[in-house]
Nucleic acid binder design. Structure first.
Lengths: 95, 95
DNA sequence: TAAATTTGGTTTATAAAATAAACTTGTTTA
DNA sequence: TAAACAAGTTTATTTTATAAACCAAATTTA
């Protein structure tokens, strides 16, 4: 039987964010925005959702006088990704 | 760089439909409904979208006096699934 | 040096998708 | 023959994603 796909991860942009954070330890808002080709508004919202779920940590600070937002994945986030991948595999068993 | 995920396939229910049709050659409306735990309305709509895109064929007939809707995947649908899987892999390169 | 532009976002509004509820047409059954 | 069921479709509602507008501070430019 097909497993449910975690709806928080099953979103183009949120998945892209998580994918980047799998590969990079930490990433700035602007970097993620560029890599994903997303608008700042959309990114802001999706980061918050991932953060609320505990999948990522978002750290806001100032570097000099510029705001700086850095994100990194949590262990919870990493396991969620593993589970999601696992579920996904079921959908392609016959390909 | 991460590839775009075909939005027609990047949907829990439509992906489940396609997954079933990968494994089964053809399937009836009612069967798909049971396997996916979807409502008839939702399924009806998603089948139509897949059909419009040419990813599946939907054949409506009568078996005696009962309507019968049978679906099967097209070659176009199969390649779309292959491409989608391929794109997806990029998102988990580091897992 | 005042006006315009850029940076790094957040908030609000709009569009698109998914889902659920209601309805249809014909059938069986109590 | 009225009630319930089957197999869907249509319409309405909710949720999600996206885009547009906005903000404050800093920087560039005329």
């Amino acid at each position: 039987m097909l497993k449910e796909l975690n709806p928080l991860l099953h979103s183009q942009l949120r998945l892209a964010i998580m994918s980047i954070l799998l590969s990079v330890e930490e990433a700035e808002f602007v970097y993620i925005k560029e890599q994903t080709n997303s608008t700042a508004g959309n990114l802001s919202i999706q980061l918050e959702k991932l953060s609320e779920a505990g999948y990522i940590e978002v750290e806001k600070s100032f570097i000099g006088k510029k705001p700086r937002t850095v994100c990194r994945m949590t262990e919870v986030g990493r396991s969620a990704m593993e589970e999601y991948l696992d579920a996904l595999k079921g959908y392609f068993a016959n390909l």
